[in-house]
Amino acid sequence: MEALEQLIVALRRLPTIGPKTARRLALHLLQRDRAAGAELARSLSTALDTLQPCRQCRQLSATELCGICADDERDQQIVCVVESLDELYQIEQTGVFNGRYFVLNGHLSPLDGIGPEELGIPQLLEQVRGGGIRELIMALSTQVEGEATAQYIADQIGPEVSLSTLAQGVPMGRSLNHLDPATLSVALSSRVARQTDAE
């Protein structure tokens, strides 16, 4: 049963998977749905063999430059900085952003030992200094770590690059009753003047 134990240990390395869940998943793949287990093994192996971080933006790609970075139709001078691939996909789903991305894979977190190097920030700064970027959009977490990360990047670049951050406040379709005090206080402090028809 050494192979079973190895599989359980491997599954436990996944985020949010504890020992019981790992055992349940392993037994499911080995006993109830061996076809799914084989498919998972093949897909994982193929993905590991073929996908690597894009040389420019660090998102996963089968080619040296990902589809977005290689796309001449997109504005390669506007770069949206995100913390994870999930967020990149979310922004892509909006269909309104036509620039490219830089994926940090996290945010500054000194207690976790995560500093600028771990986030690839030197690589981003190298691209900025190389020219060709006119705007950086900081689409980072609204908590202090995201703020510190955006500030660190801002501190390292000169005025030739325009910097912006996503607006913060009340989510679309949400009632104020469901907002926590921190979100509500940001929404109040960053309120905007109401546009009237006459304007």
């Binding site: 000194p110 202090v144 703020e147 510190a148 500030q151 206080s185």
Partner: peptide, 12 residues
């Protein structure tokens, strides 16, 4: 709310 470089100090 710690913004700007004050966010670094808070993390420190």
């Amino acid at each position: 709310r710690l913004t700007g470089q004050r966010a670094y100090l808070a993390l420190y």
